[in-house]
Design a protein around this nucleic acid. Structure first.
Lengths: 214, 214
DNA sequence: GCAAAAGTGTTTCAGGTACACCCATGG
DNA sequence: CCATGGGTGTACCTGAAACACTTTTGC
């Protein structure tokens, strides 16, 4: 009988901050060794028979201090198998994404994608490798997009999110047309209150009832 | 301390058969319980500290009887975590792909993608879920494409491979142009000997030396 | 020469990008 | 009325899809 590998689940938690006008990644200082005090992605060891989704919830609530309800969607990214990635011994890491809204959690540190602090283990590499995968999901994976932006949002916020993930800001007109093609996403007639700086109030978008159910 | 999950590695082995003019998937009858005698994807339990690539090689050589050298490339697909997928107890399955050339192996059964026999465990589901991922890699993931078609192949074979994976046969002219855009792939001046049925002999394509090194 | 199969050139169309212009707000 | 920023319409370009037509083989 071959001794089994340890499996950890590491989560890239994304939250859109309307004040900051950017997508932020949640990390937290490690409580114990190794890398005590260093920032790391929330991660836990996968329990026997535990589903990946449950483990990711456990990591996000336990390590970042978020409420379970604030996690809006999750999914798989990739698996990392370098045997030396954890100094305690060989550990497989399954990277997942999660989207969160609302409260920021009591211990979480939120950083922009383009200004991530150095992280413990190989988490820098995990974030770097997974960023293009995440950018690709925007406007194509409905669960991801809806989880990140919430049930209702403006064109201006959509512009900010796209810029955060892909690196450059699209023309508002073109983004509107991409959003028209997203199944379940609909324009409303409402307009948000304008920004203090002035300017035309942006359109409000909503998910149709069918999309929310799925 | 949480007891760790078992991790298995299940491999979708692809081989292009020029006689059959199709991409075939390698499966083998199971030696022991559960599902003894039923066909299944080659899979092994991941050893502690073992790399995914090494485990996949172990599965392909051990379960299909292929030589290690005939495996030309491997990569990740997705992870399956239903706790009831193995009757022996909860087991995570990491699905990988591998390409093989040459010998067919002594115990392997090769089936077309569109005529797969029923498989043990949730392997039917794994194959069904991963097929679009594999189709997407053709002509975009160079390692995958080169592993499947070998160092040298004809336009006719490229047409067969594309039809096997995507489900419909492209126009030869258009496929030629897609191949022109694949980095490292080059037309030669050679022509293959014509088929017994008659018809114009197809062009031979080769990977440039830089592509083979990478 | 005829059927079969590959290759060439050209047309068409859809998607994405860019941009000029119009609209609505705060100061 | 001007600066700021979202929205509309449209021109342009690239890439994929489709197809008529030519070339090269076996019979």
């Amino acid at each position: 009988m071959i001794e089994s590998t340890l499996v950890s689940v590491d989560v890239i938690v994304l939250r859109f901050d309307p004040e900051e006008r950017a997508v932020l990644v949640g990390v937290a200082p490690r409580a114990g060794e190794p890398f005590a005090g260093a920032l790391a992605l929330p991660g836990v060891l996968l329990g026997r028979g535990e589903r990946l989704r449950d483990a990711s919830t456990r990591a996000v609530t336990g390590k970042l201090g978020l409420a379970e309800e604030s996690v809006t969607a999750t999914g798989q990214l990739a698996t990392f198998d370098e045997p030396s990635r954890d100094p305690r011994g060989p550990t497989l890491s399954i990277a997942l994404w999660a989207t969160a809204t609302g409260a920021t959690g009591d211990v979480a540190v939120w950083s922009r994608f383009d200004a991530m602090p150095p992280l413990a283990f190989d988490h820098d590499r995990i974030v770097a490798d997974c960023r293009p995968l995440l950018a690709d999901k925007l406007w194509r994976d409905v669960a991801f997009t809806a989880g990140l932006l919430g049930p209702e949002f403006t064109t201006a916020q959509a512009l900010d999110v796209t810029e955060s993930l892909t690196g450059d800001r699209p023309y508002p007109a073109n983004l509107g047309r991409t959003m028209d093609r997203v199944p379940g996403l609909e324009r409303t007639n409402e307009h948000a209150s304008a920004l203090p700086k002035g300017g035309r109030p942006p359109l409000v978008w909503k998910w149709s009832s069918e999309a929310v159910r799925a």
